[in-house]
Structure formats: C-alpha cells, structure tokens
Amino acid sequence: MTRYIVKKIIDMIITIFIIVLIVFAMFELIPGNPARIMLGMNASNAQVAALEAELGLDKSIFVKIYTYFSDLFNGDLGFSFRFQRPVIELITEALPYTLFLALYAFFFIIILAIPLAILAARKPNSKLDNFIRISSETCLAIPPFFMAIILMLIFRTSQLALQGGSVDFDLNNAFQSYWMPALAIALSRLAMAMEFLRDSIIEQRESDYVKTAIGKGASRSRVMFFHIFRNSLVPFITALGLILAEVFSGSIIIEQVFLIPGLGRSLVTAVEARDFQLTQGIVLLIAFIVVFVNFCVDLINQFIDPRIREQNKKLYKSRNTFFLRMKNQANLDSQKKR
C-alpha cells in the first residue's frame, strides 16, 4: 500500500512538472505584454518598458523557469504582479468559494440523484424510468452557463440578490445564497451520477444474495435500504469522486456568470492580465485536486477489485454493513502481507 502511494506521489510530481513547463511555453507563445495591460492605452512605450524591467519580465524564459522551480521547491508559489500580492494569499482567499460551491453542487447531486435513481430503478424501462433518465440527460445536454441563464430567467434573481445585497462572503448565509449556481452545476452533472446509481441498484437487485433475502421473507423496503441501496453506494461514491473533479473545472464558467470570486474568476483575470505566476498557481491547484481525486478513486477501485468482491459477497449473505466490509478489507490486506 505504501509503495502504491509513493509511486502515485512521484507520478504527481512528474505531472506537475510537465504542467508547469506547458504553461510556461504557452505564456511565451501567447501575445500580450503584462506591463502594457496594466498600464493601458494612455501610457507611453517608455513607461511600459520601465514597468517591465521593474516586474522582471524582461528576463529570459530559462531564468524565469529556473526561478519558478526553485521557488516552488521552497513552497513558494510566487508573486502576482497584477494584484501585487503573494499567489498563495490570493489562492487561499479564492479557494473557499470554489470549494464551497463545488461541495454544495455535489450535495445537490447526491440529494437529487439518490431518490431519482431509486425511483427510476423500481421498474427499469417504465414510463417513469424513461422520463427521469431523459430529463436528466436533457440537463446534461445544456451547456452549464446556459443552464445558469435559464435559472436566472426562471427565478428572476441573481447571486447578489440572494445574498440580500450584502457583498461579503458569510458562511452562515452561503447555503441560502449559493443555491442557484450550485444547482446550475449540479443539474448539468446529475445525469451521470443518477444513471450510475440506477444501474448499480438494478444490478444489486438481480444478485443472488438479494434474492435470498427476499426469499427469506424480508420486507421490500428493508431489502431496498439494507441490502440493495447500501451496496450500491460504494461504486456510486467512486463515481461521485470523478464527478467532483469535474464540478471543480465546471465552476470556472459558472463563477463568471454568478459573480463568485473563486478560483475560476481568478484564473480568467490572471490569464487576461498575463499574470503567469498566478495562473501557474491556480492551474497547479486545480491539477492537484483532479489528480488527488483520481488517486482516491483508484484506491476505492482497488478496494472493490473483483477478487475482494467475491470474498465480500459471501459476507453479504450474512448481515453485512459497510463497516464490516471495511474490516474485511483490512483482513485481506493483512493476509496478503503474510
């Protein structure tokens, strides 16, 4: 297990190294002079040149890359010349918004997907099932920003209106004020989670142990919740992990529409200002989150490896719980070591 984690961390470092190089190369190729952007049209070329020298933009790319990496190794993400502040500060200010938005959207996905999936799975290919599936797929087909516009039109309200005119982020009110952007993201990602859970519920229901349970005379709802639903959850959580990574990248555009000062808006501002240190910092953070989530998903994947599954299935026939299964996994691990 430790070896696996170490290997993954090395992979991650290499990936981050490649990302930094790609972003650097892109900034070299993309036209636009950061100093000129800061000073605007009414500045003379001499002023622009002076500012460039002051910001250290006139150095060669190799010097810049070397400096960036040596800073990075010291845990320094660099300095944003657009905001004249350390990148790490700007990121830690913006991250809570994006994190909250992503988790809130995630929460919506869960509370919508579970009942819908259970409903849909009751009778596969019934009218209800088809209706639920097609509506959720229609949502999947709507571009997220268009979804945001539709929501704004329907509810005739916006982010600031929801916050009651207050301009500060306040966690107490955040649940009330972020529901619309969160819903916009959630709706466009709902279909994947919903269908996945539906399929796995149907799959579980057809499995032997459930049939056994029904045969033993367990009540329908009891079987539904204690056997089928619970066992469908583990793969469902895996899928959610993947969706979470997407929700993160999906929030970039939603933040533009809903005035949310999160990572997405910072990224757009940074790119537009050609603020490469800030851009690097945000890209790296997003990359890290995506890689980290994938890493967790891999772990869970290993956990539900078919071999382990077979072992578990025997256990399911007795009264099983999620935790029992975890315990079983631990036993398996120790057996392997031996």
């Binding site: 990302i19 892109m26 190729l29 993309i30 036209p31 990224l267 790119v271 995506v290």
Partner: peptide, 18 residues
C-alpha cells in the same frame, strides 16, 4: 494527465490569439 489539467481558456487563448 498534464494536458487534462490545462484550462481551456489558456489553450483557446494560445491558438486564437497567436
């Protein structure tokens, strides 16, 4: 993996602007 992490806005800017 690295390519997946590059934001679309950067890639778009690279080609559209250059």
């Amino acid at each position: 993996e690295a390519l997946l992490s590059i934001p679309m806005i950067l890639m778009g800017l690279l080609f559209v602007s250059s």
